[in-house]
Amino acid sequence: MALGNALSNRPKSEEPNINITSMMDMFTIILFFLLSSYGSSPVEFDLDKGMELPESSATFDYSNSVKLFLSNSSIKVEKELVGQLRDGQVLDLDMTKPKSSYLYIKLKAFHEKQIEDAKIEAEKDGKDAKDDFHVLFFCDRNLPYKTMNNIMKVAALAGYPNFQLAVLEKS
């Protein structure tokens, strides 16, 4: 009882007043920085585990197009697996009959769709249809030229003779 009285008689402590203005300032700066960097990289890439891109001094921005991923174990067009590699050799790709490969069929389908879309777009705008499509090529830095050359040849046959090689900015 005595304890209860003592507690009730104790002077009430004041509520602590924290100044959050400086924290708000800091948060505002961080928020604007993150928002600006979020807007400049809207595309997400799903790279294979262990795939390393080469570093380059190139400063050209990549443009979004059909993405071709060549790692040391697989070939993907966009997110779909179209082939496999073993010891740098592409399985199921006979370079004497490249048009029979699934990679060719897939790329050709993408190319035809892009042409169709460009025609519709051109009709809307009253301009000539665009036909200079390219492949955004992600290739593992340690792959030999022989492997990538075969893939590039198939892509060129499917209507993509122009490539944009995806590289990392030199740190």
Binding site: S37, S56, P161, F163
Partner: peptide, 19 residues
């Protein structure tokens, strides 16, 4: 925003194969 921000900056090199 921190979780979705990128730490790798990607660039492109334009090239072509002869046709």
């Amino acid at each position: 925003l921190l979780a979705s921000s990128t730490t790798l900056f990607l660039n492109g090199i334009n090239t072509s194969v002869p046709v």
